[in-house]
Design a binder for these strands. Structure first.
Length: 345
DNA sequence: AAAACGGGGAC
DNA sequence: GTCCCAGTTTT
């Protein structure tokens, strides 16, 4: 048995039944691929179902407001994916008559579609013979062939793509691409794979050399920055509050938040209440300031640890642009703010 | 080439 | 705590 035959046989017996399989329609395939970038299937699944329900076609997605799209994306993370998804839907609907490009090369031109996603759509929808190279592929091939190339290096993707291309059956690239990723996700997992039941345990070089746990080689070590956010939850005579859109570069672009005081360190009541007097005391009579959560909520992003405090600020009079608790819930928020609104507000 | 970009699950 | 997930874009 060849590598691809064995792999595909394994796949046919072990594959999950996923809603974006069993179609060649590029729209749901594209949607699923964007959602699953750096995201587990289990996490992306409910979002895929709600998106396809809300936007059955690329035209429906194109017609939506970005805010609607971000609201449905809320909690999935990497929000540039949602913004690019929306822009690309508009491009396909308005400029391409709703028809997705049909080649790897042309798909690559679309916003949010890189080498992996272009290969996935081209092979799954159009049977183009082009290999996907994702985290699973790096892991499976580096172990099977004992390849010690640092997968962070720019050259690694080319090396593994060339290898995958040689391995894939040229008459059915789609099933090979599906199979190698599924194999990485279910069998050749990052930690403690059960090699005793693996179909490749007679030929996997890493297993023979007892170095499965050392592959793939990945050098990257990322630095995390600490930030300290103080969110001001204003509350006026009508029980209305204020939110604002994050329009700066950086995290949570185009999502909403409460008025923010960012500090260099964790601050206590005296510092924050003084700052609130400066920011809002000019236009409002502040009745009281109270910390909502005793200790900071530590919200961990991949490159930042956020230490977040919410401060309830009761004021006299009525806020201009104040919004009520019902309308508040219609805006897209970072999940940590959404959770606060749902549980603690 | 390196950094930025979310959130959660598994250990 | 660590690692990493059907990666892409920006710097």
């Amino acid at each position: 048995m060849t590598f691809s035959n064995l792999l595909i046989q394994w796949y046919l017996h072990n594959k999950r039944d996923l809603p974006w399989r069993n179609t060649t329609n590029p729209y749901p395939i594209w949607l699923s691929e964007i959602m699953l970038q750096q995201t587990r299937v289990a996490q992306g699944m409910p979002y895929f179902l709600s998106f396809t329900a809300a936007f059955p076609t690329v035209f429906d997605l194109a017609k939506a407001d970005e805010e609607q799209v971000l609201k449905l994306w809320q909690g999935l993370g990497y929000y540039s994916r949602a913004r690019n998804l929306h822009k690309t839907a508009q491009h396909v609907a308005d400029e391409l008559s709703g028809v997705f490009p049909t080649t790897y090369k042309d798909l690559l031109q679309l916003k949010g579609i890189g080498e992996y996603t272009a290969a996935a759509i081209a092979s799954f929808s159009y049977n183009e013979v082009v290999p996907v190279v994702d985290g699973n592929v790096f892991r499976v091939l580096s172990r099977y062939f004992d390849i010690e190339t640092d997968i962070v290096a720019a050259s690694a993707k080319k090396e593994f793509a060339a290898l995958a291309f040689e391995l894939m059956p040229k008459d059915n690239p789609a099933i090979f691409n599906q199979a190698i990723m599924e194999f990485g996700a279910l069998q050749c997992v990052p930690k403690s794979p059960n090699c005793s039941i693996c179909v490749f345990n007679g030929s996997c070089v890493a297993l023979q050399k007892n170095k499965v746990d050392q592959l793939p080689v990945k050098s990257k070590k990322l630095k995390v920055r600490n930030r300290f956010f103080n969110y001001l939850v204003l509350n006026d005579e009508n029980n209305n509050t204020i939110i604002q859109k994050r329009t700066d570069k950086g995290i949570w672009h185009n999502l909403y938040e409460f008025p923010l005081i960012e500090t260099e360190k964790e601050e206590e009541f005296s510092f924050i209440s003084t700052q609130i007097q400066k920011d809002f005391g000019v236009n409002h009579e502040i009745i009281s300031v109270a910390e909502c959560n005793g200790k900071s909520i530590i919200h961990k992003l991949s490159h930042q640890h956020l230490y977040i405090k919410f401060w309830k600020v009761n004021i006299n009079g009525v806020l201009k642009k104040g919004i009520n608790n019902v309308d508040l819930k219609t805006f897209p928020f970072p999940i940590v703010i959404h959770n606060f609104i749902e549980k603690d507000l």
